[in-house]
Amino acid sequence: MPKILVVDDEEDVVRLLEFRLAKEGFEVISCADGPAALTLADQEKPDLVILDIMMPLMDGMEVLRQIRSRRATSRIPVIMLTAKTSSMAVDEARQLWVSDYIMKPFDPEKLVVKAKKALKIPIDQ
């Protein structure tokens, strides 16, 4: 079963994602900040990271940069969760190779579609 790491400082959002993704049968691990996310990514080697941008301690963009800069994690697909609608942020994220991004607030169903797409799992199964 693919393992998905969810990173968001909002507990409600993390719970929502955990619930919905578990429903799809994914193994979900989560944390609330950037440094923890990097540790988990190293230890657990998730198949997908769903990463919020606006977080205390370390923002999502920095976490993404570090994931990409480490050999062990550099190829893990990442979906960015963002409250920002700035095209600049989106563009920067794209240059750091994100699989997709989804704007908050989001429809959980759409997120599932995007996650499956990133994990190359056929949709409508």
Partner: peptide, 26 residues
């Protein structure tokens, strides 16, 4: 703008997410 965009969206994200989750029958 950036304050609003974050602080308004965050609760809305939860509201909308859970409502849609329930509506979808999960």
């Amino acid at each position: 703008v950036s304050l609003v965009s974050h602080d308004l969206r965050t609760p809305l994200t939860a509201i909308q997410g859970y409502v849609k989750l329930i509506l979808a029958g999960h």
